[in-house]
Design a protein around this nucleic acid. Structure first.
Length: 502
RNA sequence: UCCCCGAUAGCUCAAUCGGUAGAGCGAGCGGCUGUUAACCGCUAGGUCGUAGGUUCGAGUCCUACUCGGGGAGCCA
């Protein structure tokens, strides 16, 4: 029945031909003599022109009263026209309404985030989530392609697990037929087993963290890709990581430039992301944090914030003054929505101004041995225009499985990759401890039950080799690429602390 | 877990000193228009988050609770 449906994205190949499209009303501008219906079909938008003289009178009247998100098929001639979205339009000769939509809750005006999340099942149809979803698809595809093309074997690691990969405290516990089990926090430990079988492996799936974190950078369920490689050292891992990240960004830039533009992403800065990335040891990073340069940077930033605040306040005052004058209603609307945005901006600037001295203090008082805090990472990433690897963290601050450095026993061979412009950590990785004795000592030190880790220790007993890997968070990467402030927009149905909506 | 902010029409927001509840969008009806966040006119739409308190009088002040937003810590 629908075999003759043409996708809107393919209209460019059907100019002057008669086609049928199927989709949903995105926008309607009905008139006495001509109706403009913008229709979306998942592949794009198309403006459909319905002239009163071209269709039966009853159909014209029905189409004139069609509201947002009504579903229908439309038949007509494709015309190239610069006045239409996408450059093509359909001169309609016939249409069939499938399901008229009444009182669709999402309107073209702005909505609050709570409302949109409650209506997430419908919000997915809107432009922003649609663009992000398309980019996510490319990103996921590119991730698989990179590893598949570089000799990695996909291994699906379990979601129910008996042991913790990261530190406890962020585990979701489940009742597994009366036995305690957890949802996976990482596929790494299982992946290491597979790496010793295949050499180069990766896993890609959902990951669960029960962290009580209500921030724009946290989900309780997120997707992570984790490669694991044998016969490698830390510099080798960094090389894979920077090639990997550069590859996926290149693919997104190639495939989704239009979506990135719609979302207002910083394309120019993404185009700069090419190997090599910056490399800092933890010790160098801590020196930067406590340096005068960092303090000067923060002071300059504070001044920028204050200037921006002043400018924003001036803009608000000017708009408020204009709004009180005798002006057209549409201008008043525009001012009102601009004012809302400006006030949000002002609030964010206030937060930044408030946090800046705290961050300066944290940075200045940074002591070797602590883990890098969020603000420290942000500061370092802001001071660089490309991603930064921070390596060799203090052993005490890091997970038990990370390999002790041969030259400096106080540090481990690990790395975090910080995205530029303050987006923070998107990759964490390390060489794994391959010495049976050292790993055992760490397990004992952490007071973990040895019997739970015997299988993991076995990997160091039977043909242990140097190996390592890393994990990349899909939603955080997507937030970075798209310029989305909040990670919750980067997955179709976000799971957040204390909130499962559907 | 801690700190800050908020809750008014379906949605986004106003409401001055504590004194009769207002717009726009969306919805419905009509008009007009190669329109494009179209425009113009009319109509409907409210127990001001919940429960107390202060007051002649509370959307506005106070207390508690619920829900939401932002930030800190922690992390991908």
């Amino acid at each position: 029945m629908f075999s003759n449906i043409t996708k809107i994205a393919d209209l460019k190949d059907n100019v002057e031909k008669t086609v049928t499209i199927g989709g949903w009303v995105y926008h309607s501008r009905p008139g006495g003599k001509v109706i403009f219906l913008v229709v979306r079909d998942g592949s794009g938008l198309c403006q459909c022109i319905i002239e009163k003289t071209a269709v039966p009178e009853e159909l014209f009247s029905q189409l004139a009263h069609l509201s947002m998100e009504s579903s229908l098929t439309l038949t007509g001639t494709v015309r190239a026209d610069d006045r239409s979205v996408g450059g093509y339009e359909l001169a309609v000769t016939d249409a069939k309404i499938l399901c008229p939509s009444q009182d669709y809750p999402i309107t073209p005006k702005s909505h609050g985030i709570d409302f949109l999340l409650k209506n997430r099942h419908l919000h997915l149809r809107s432009q922003m989530p649609w663009c992000i979803g398309r980019i996510r698809h490319t990103l996921v595809n590119a991730i698989r392609q990179f590893f598949n093309d570089n000799g990695f074997t996909l291994v699906d690691t379990p979601i129910f697990t008996g042991i913790a990969g990261e530190e406890a405290g962020s585990l979701f516990e489940v009742d597994y037929f009366g036995l305690p089990a957890n949802l996976t926090q990482t596929g790494q430990l299982h992946l290491e087993c597979a790496a010793l079988s295949y050499g180069r492996v990766y896993c890609f799936g959902p990951t669960f963290r029960a962290e009580k974190s209500k921030t724009r950078r946290h989900l309780t369920e997120f997707w992570m890709v984790e490669p694991e490689v044998t016969f490698i050292d830390l510099p080798g891992l960094l090389e894979i990581a920077e090639n990997f990240v550069s590859f996926i960004i290149k693919k997104v830039l190639e495939t989704n430039r239009a979506e990135l533009q719609t979302l207002g992403a910083n394309i120019a800065s993404l185009e700069k992301i090419q190997p090599p990335f910056y490399r800092l040891t933890y010790t160098q990073a801590s020196e930067i944090l406590t340096s005068q340069k960092a303090q000067d940077f923060l002071a300059a930033q504070l001044n920028e914030f204050k200037t921006a605040k002043q400018e924003t306040e001036n803009k608000i005052a000017a708009l408020e003054a204009e709004s009180k004058g005798a002006i057209k209603q549409w201008r008043k609307d525009k001012i009102a929505s601009e004012l809302i945005d400006l006030r949000i901006e002002l609030g964010e600037l206030d937060t930044k101004i408030e946090n800046n001295p705290k961050h300066a203090k944290l940075a200045a008082e940074f002591k070797w041995g602590e883990d890098l805090g969020g603000s420290d990472e942000t500061l370092i990433s802001l001071m660089h225009d490309k991603p930064v690897f921070v390596t060799h963290y203090p052993r005490e601050a890091k997970a038990f499985y990370m390999k002790q450095d041969s030259e400096n026993p106080k540090v481990v061979q690990n790395f975090d990759m910080l995205a530029p412009a303050g987006f923070g950590e998107i990759i964490g990785g390390s060489m794994r401890e391959d010495s049976y004795d050292k790993l055992l000592a760490k397990i004992i030190e952490h007071k973990y039950k040895i019997e739970n880790y015997q299988w993991y220790l076995d990997l160091r007993k039977y043909g242990s080799v140097p190996h390592g890997g890393f994990g990349l968070g899909v939603e955080r990467t997507l937030a970075w690429l798209t310029g989305e402030k909040h990670i919750r927009q980067c997955i179709a149905f976000p799971r957040m602390m204390d909130k499962i909506l559907k």
